[in-house]
């Protein structure tokens, strides 16, 4: 093994996350979390932000960490829940709801898959004092499943189903996550893209565009699809 992660810094934080912890995070840092967080994705956003339905619980009082996740879970006959693996879903699809969501919920950390564009960070995350952490892999479902110590509550399970319900988890040594954005709006992924893009001209040397092109097609590999 090429001494993996030798240059990777690791921190352990408490959730809800303190403002000074959010402010002090550098992109590329690995984070493990203890405390409480909740899940919410398009089902929750659509209802609360889109349709103006009152949240089922005071979200700001729950936590300031929102996990874009659907657990592999099932309900037992006694009303308890079995959580198997836990993995995030790709977050870029939820950007349209987040400005209102931050205002409504007081959320300061979004955990998900793949991050958002730098533009979304600068326009929506930074003014709200929020940052983005990405899950690793994707995904380390079994490791994250281990980190969930208790299902504190689940809301809207009937209405939204297991995948879209708002789950509240008590977690311990929950991770790993990688800090993808900071309060200046920098994106680790965009920095990686920029670095990788430098080799594209050489990589594509000698190839030519396909004979039949497609509407809306970009021929610039520097572009992203999200």
């Amino acid at each position: 093994m090429a001494s993996p992660g030798r240059a990777v810094k690791t921190v352990r934080l408490k959730a809800p996350v303190a403002p000074e912890d959010v402010a002090g995070l550098e992109i590329g840092t690995v984070v493990y979390l203890d405390g409480r967080l909740y899940t919410g994705r398009e089902g929750v956003y659509k209802r609360i932000v889109g349709e103006g339905v009152a949240p089922p619980v005071d979200i700001a009082a729950l936590s300031n960490v929102n996990f874009h996740c659907s657990p592999a879970a099932s309900a037992a006959a006694d009303g308890s829940y079995r959580i198997g693996a836990v993995t995030a879903t790709a977050s870029f699809r939820f950007a349209p709801w987040l400005e209102r969501w931050f205002a409504l919920s007081g959320c300061k950390v979004i955990i998900g898959k793949g991050g958002m564009s730098g533009e979304v960070y600068r326009k929506i995350f930074v003014p709200a004092g929020a940052v983005y952490w990405t899950t690793v892999g994707y995904g380390t479902g079994a490791l994250l499943g281990r980190g969930i110590k208790r299902v504190a509550a689940v809301h809207w399970l009937e209405d939204l189903g297991i995948a879209q319900a708002l789950w509240v988890f008590e977690v311990e040594n929950f991770g790993p996550f990688i800090v993808e954005s900071d309060l200046a709006g920098n994106s680790l992924f965009e920095q990686a893209n920029e670095e990788v893009s430098k080799g594209f001209a050489k990589l594509y040397e000698g190839t030519k565009p396909a004979i039949l092109s497609r509407y809306g097609e970009t021929d610039s590999r520097d572009d992203e699809l999200i």
Binding site: S70, A72, G84, A85, V86, G141, A142, G145
Partner: peptide
């Protein structure tokens, strides 16, 4: 743990 390796 006998749990799924990925939740998706």
């Amino acid at each position: 743990d006998r749990r799924a390796m990925c939740a998706d």
